[in-house]
C-alpha cells in the first residue's frame, strides 16, 4: 500500500503548473477543457433526447472506423480520421435502427449488440494488423492527455489543441445557427415534423457531429471516458437549470472547472489526467446533485408551510 499516493507537495501540485511548468500543464488543461466543452455541448442534446447510450455506442464503434481509415490510407491524416469516424457513427446509427425495427430485438439489446460487435471488430483489426495500424489498444481505454509540448506546433499552438479548438468552435457555431431546429426537434419531434423541420435529418446531423466530436476527443480521453465527457457536463447543468441556454453555459463552466480540477487531482494522485478530469467532473456533479436535492427539499418544505398557513 505504501507509495500508492505520491508525497504531498503543495507547490508541485497547485503552484508549479501555473508558474514554472505552465508551458506543459497550461496546454494540457486547455486541451482537457476543449475536449470536455465540445463533448458537453453536444451531450446536452443527447441527454434531452434520451440518447445518452447512443453516445456510449458511437464512442465504442468509432474504433473500427479509425482502424479501417488507418488500413486504407496508411497513416492517420485528419480527413481520413474524420471520414472513418463519420462512417462508423452513421453505420452504428443505421445498424441500431435496422436491428430493432426489422426484428423483435429491443432497442437496448440492439444498442448493446451493435457497439460490442463493432468494438470487438476494431480491437481485432488493431491486433491483427498491428504492424500497419499504429493505434494502441491501451490508448482506447486510458486516453492519453499527454505532454502536448512534444506535439508539432503551428501558430505557436500545439496542433491537437488547434484541431480540438476548431471542433469546439464549429460545434458552437452550429448550435447557434441551428438553435431553433435543434430545440424543437429535441423537445417535440412530432411538432417539429408538422412544422417542416425534418427531425430525421436533424437526428442524422447530430449523430454526424457527435461522431466527429468523439473522434477528436478519442485520442485524448479514450473510448470510455469520452462517455463521461459527453454526459457529465450536460447532466450537471440540467440539474441546476431548466433553461437550455443556461444549461449550455453551465456545461462550459463545468468543463473548465473539471479541467482545472482534474489537472491538480492527477498531480496529487499521480494518475492519468483524462481519468482525473472525469473524477473531478463527477465530484462537481455530486455537488450539483446535493444542491438540487436540498433545493427540492426546501421547495417541498416551503409548500408544506404554505399549505399549513392558509
Amino acid at each position: 500500500m505504501d507509495g500508492l499516493l505520491p508525497p504531498f507537495d503543495a507547490h508541485r501540485i497547485f503552484i508549479a503548473p501555473w508558474t514554472t511548468d505552465i508551458a506543459t500543464y497550461g496546454w494540457m488543461a486547455l486541451m482537457a477543457f476543449l475536449v470536455t466543452a465540445a463533448c458537453g455541448l453536444v451531450g446536452n442534446y443527447l441527454i434531452l433526447r434520451r440518447m445518452a447510450l447512443v453516445g456510449d455506442a458511437i464512442s465504442h464503434s468509432v474504433l473500427p472506423g479509425l482502424a479501417v481509415a488507418f488500413l486504407i490510407s496508411g497513416k492517420l491524416t485528419l480527413p481520413a480520421m474524420l471520414a472513418g469516424a463519420l462512417g462508423a457513427g452513421l453505420l452504428t446509427t443505421f445498424l441500431i435502427e435496422f436491428l430493432h425495427t426489422r426484428s423483435r430485438i429491443k432497442a437496448d439489446a440492439a444498442i448493446g449488440i451493435t457497439f460490442c460487435s463493432l468494438f470487438a471488430l476494431g480491437v481485432v483489426l488493431i491486433n491483427v494488423f498491428a504492424s500497419k495500424v499504429h493505434l494502441d489498444a491501451e490508448c482506447v481505454l486510458y486516453g492519453e492527455l499527454s505532454n502536448l509540448t512534444l506535439a508539432e506546433f503551428s501558430l505557436g499552438i500545439p496542433e491537437p489543441v488547434l484541431v480540438m479548438g476548431g471542433v469546439v468552435f464549429s460545434v458552437a457555431v452550429l448550435i447557434v445557427v441551428f438553435y431553433k431546429e435543434l430545440l424543437i426537434t429535441s423537445f417535440d419531434a412530432l411538432l417539429a415534423g408538422s412544422q417542416g423541420f425534418a427531425p430525421g435529418k436533424m437526428h442524422l446531423a447530430l449523430m454526424a457531429v457527435l461522431s466527429i466530436v468523439i473522434v477528436a476527443a478519442f485520442e485524448s480521453v479514450g473510448a470510455i471516458l469520452v462517455i463521461a465527457m459527453l454526459i457529465l457536463p450536460g447532466a450537471t447543468a440540467q440539474l441546476l437549470s431548466t433553461r437550455l441556454p443556461i444549461c449550455l453555459a453551465l456545461s462550459l463552466l463545468h468543463a473548465s472547472l473539471s479541467a482545472i480540477g482534474g489537472l491538480h487531482l492527477s498531480l496529487m494522485l499521480g494518475c492519468p489526467m483524462a481519468a482525473a478530469v472525469v473524477v473531478a467532473g463527477t465530484l462537481l456533479f455530486g455537488f450539483a446533485w446535493m444542491a438540487s436535492l436540498l433545493k427540492t427539499r426546501a421547495g417541498f418544505e416551503a409548500s408544506m408551510a404554505a399549505e399549513a398557513t392558509p
Binding site: 499504429h134 482506447v140 508539432e152
Partner: peptide, 12 residues
C-alpha cells in the same frame, strides 16, 4: 508515449 498515441498528426 507515441506508441500509445493513435495519430501521428503531431510527431517530432
Amino acid at each position: 508515449t507515441q506508441r500509445f498515441r493513435k495519430t501521428n498528426l503531431c510527431v517530432l
